[in-house]
Design a protein around this nucleic acid. Structure first.
Lengths: 207, 207
DNA sequence: ACCTGAACACCGTTCAAGT
DNA sequence: ACCTGAACACCGTTCAAGT
């Protein structure tokens, strides 16, 4: 039998994806902080130096993974949005929030590891921007249809998104039924945030 | 002149505080990720090994600093709360939100470095809990006084706190006048989240 | 053109010795 | 009782050589 090893060459895109996949697995198991380049390369079955042919640094591969995850979640949300009835804007908003929470809960361990330990940048660089933009679009459409009353859709979207996102993180450490209560609470806050106020209610608001 | 160096001994609490202060300065200047134990010890004018007589690890000193900051901010908020008129619960809530945002903006660089780069734990471990508890107290007091309508004060506090906290972070990268708009938007969302709904408004909410 | 892995540099942590 | 700083261990990154 021949002792010469077969070529280890692979098309760059395939190799790159393999490295990302290995990283994803390791990060969702042990978190990003303890992750080692050597763990990645041995999981991906390549030499240590090969890693640096595909990524500039450890930070770089985590950013790439984070972007891939953000894009995945965004696609999820787009699909969910497209499936919702076009005219019931309140229903669209509340359903979207439920789906956003659930998709985030589903990816909890990977998401937490990437967004909250070790290599997180300011939220703006976190891929949250595109998600907030989508929510803002929902709000604007409802406002245009005359169903919502929103002074600044972009800001309200930022607030609602962060309320949801931060609270999920906080609640995730807790028993399962809390998630359902969170969904309801977020939906209620969102509905209150966008609903037209009657003259009577306006008076009650004070200031 | 004597060549013997004078004793370098200091009371433990003083030394510990000096190390924390040096760390604080360095972290708010360069962030936590690039921070080096050697930078800390030379800024605090001690030997490298001395650091480990006071803190178990680099992570440990950052946690201690984070806790000190959280306690500082909490005290700020308590003082602000005590100064507010006791009966106007809507005013207490909106003023509290303004003060919380402003105190957080004031400590922006340190806060970001500690909470968002390198060594952040889940939000629950972040010192946010006591802040959320304070906000929940505000909400409960308003509900007890019959001025607020809140199904789950603890959850609403979590949501509002995260809305505010996340959005500040997001807006901080932007020009100054955005902060004022953020304050108003947070206040508006909070008021809407807690106001009693008229029968008329309830009908509009749907589901 | 793609891959290897030994060598290097840096830094967190330890520990035997000092006042 | 508190402090020192050289030594150690670990791991991210580089680079000369291999197919």
């Amino acid at each position: 039998m021949p002792s010469a090893r077969t070529s280890r060459t692979l098309p760059p895109e395939i190799r790159r994806t393999a490295i990302l996949d290995a990283t994803r697995k390791l990060v969702s198991e042990h978190g990003a902080a303890e992750l080692t380049i050597e763990e990645i390369t041995s999981a991906a079955d390549i030499a240590k130096g090969t890693f640096y042919l595909y990524f500039k640094s450890k930070h770089d591969v985590l950013v790439a993974l984070r972007d891939r995850l953000a894009a995945e979640i965004l696609a999820d949300h787009e699909a969910a949005l497209a499936a919702l009835p076009p005219d019931d804007h309140t229903g669209r908003l509340t359903q979207w929030l439920r789906l956003a929470i659930e998709s985030r809960v589903r990816r909890a361990s990977l998401h937490d590891a990437l967004f909250h330990s070790g290599h997180a940048e300011p939220a703006a660089a976190r891929g949250a921007d595109s998600h907030i933009a989508m929510l803002a679009r929902l709000l604007e459409e409802g406002a245009t249809a005359g169903q919502f009353d929103i002074a600044d859709p972009e800001l309200v979207a930022t607030l609602l998104y962060n309320a949801m996102h931060g609270a999920v993180q906080q609640v995730l450490a807790q028993p399962d039924d809390k998630i359902e209560r969170l969904v309801r609470a977020v939906q209620d806050m969102a509905v209150r945030a966008v609903m037209p106020l009657t003259v009577d209610t306006r008076r009650q608001r004070g200031q």
